[in-house]
């Protein structure tokens, strides 16, 4: 068979698959929730957060889509695991529902039963066929408040030194890795008088993820507060 024929057959096949999927899924709805995780919730790990969201959905009686099989679990996806102890204003969750809901009403209902420390910033509908959030995430931004009362100029110097290095070898959980390519941007900004904040953007691709405390530690400094400000996806419109 010629390559053209194969291509045509493939196209026909995928069109068919798409149609079937559309008919199965047309009543489904994929909601994308952007939420904050504040101080009260900063010690909740990713698995625990996943369960907390499942329970939140159950409290409002949301008709979640479940996986098939012996142990059905609801279809919920968190974009990125937030390291323990860090607060965030930019967490993203996708949830699949069997029946369409009125988003504003749904938002009000959910807000009433959220666990302490979680607040919703935005809910919108996402396309059912879109790839998973995790696979489309590419970077994460943090703001870190520095504990040391060093002069801003000193911190700036350290940052400059770090950024000028070709490699920054670190060890985490017994594994050696290079931190330098994971740092996309790193800059010092003046916060309250006399205090400095570090603003950074770290890579967050699968298997290629930077952690803010590693950056602070590589600078030889300590922080009082770490906060996630944004998730960056491959396409702007997440």
């Amino acid at each position: 068979m010629s390559n053209d024929a194969i291509e045509i057959l493939e196209n026909v096949f995928w069109t068919l698959v798409g149609t079937v999927r559309y008919y199965i899924a047309r009543k489904m709805q994929r909601l994308r929730i952007t939420f904050t995780k504040s101080e009260e919730a900063r010690f909740i790990g990713n698995l625990d957060l996943h369960r907390a969201w499942e329970r939140t959905m159950r409290r409002v009686g949301a008709d979640m889509v479940f996986s098939q099989g012996f142990n059905p679990s609801p279809k919920l996806q968190l974009a990125s695991a937030l390291p323990l102890g860090i607060t965030s204003e930019a967490e993203v969750l996708d949830v699949w529902l069997n029946e369409r809901v009125e988003i504003d009403d749904f938002g009000v209902q959910i807000t009433e039963v959220l666990p302490p420390g979680i607040q919703i910033r935005k809910i919108r509908e996402a396309k059912l066929g879109e790839k998973s959030l995790q696979s489309r995430l590419c970077a994460v931004e943090y703001v870190v408040e520095m504990r040391d009362s060093k002069l801003i100029r000193e911190i700036e110097l350290e940052v400059k030194k770090l950024l000028s290095r070709q490699t920054v070898m670190r060890k985490r959980r017994g594994k050696d890795y290079d931190l330098r390519p994971l740092i996309e941007t790193l800059e010092v900004k003046r916060a309250k008088p006399g205090n400095a904040d570090l603003h950074m953007r770290l890579s967050a691709r699968p298997g290629f993820t930077g952690r803010p405390e590693e950056v602070i530690s590589a600078l030889g400094m300590a922080s009082t507060w770490m906060h996630r400000t944004a998730l960056i996806f491959v396409d702007k419109d997440y």
Binding site: E40, F43, I44, G45, D48, L84, G85, P115, P116, G117
Partner: peptide, 16 residues
């Protein structure tokens, strides 16, 4: 001190 202990969520309360 909590960031340094195992499962700090045990020690903070504030659950639903």
């Amino acid at each position: 001190v909590l960031p340094d202990v195992e499962r700090p969520g045990r020690y903070v309360g504030g659950e639903l």
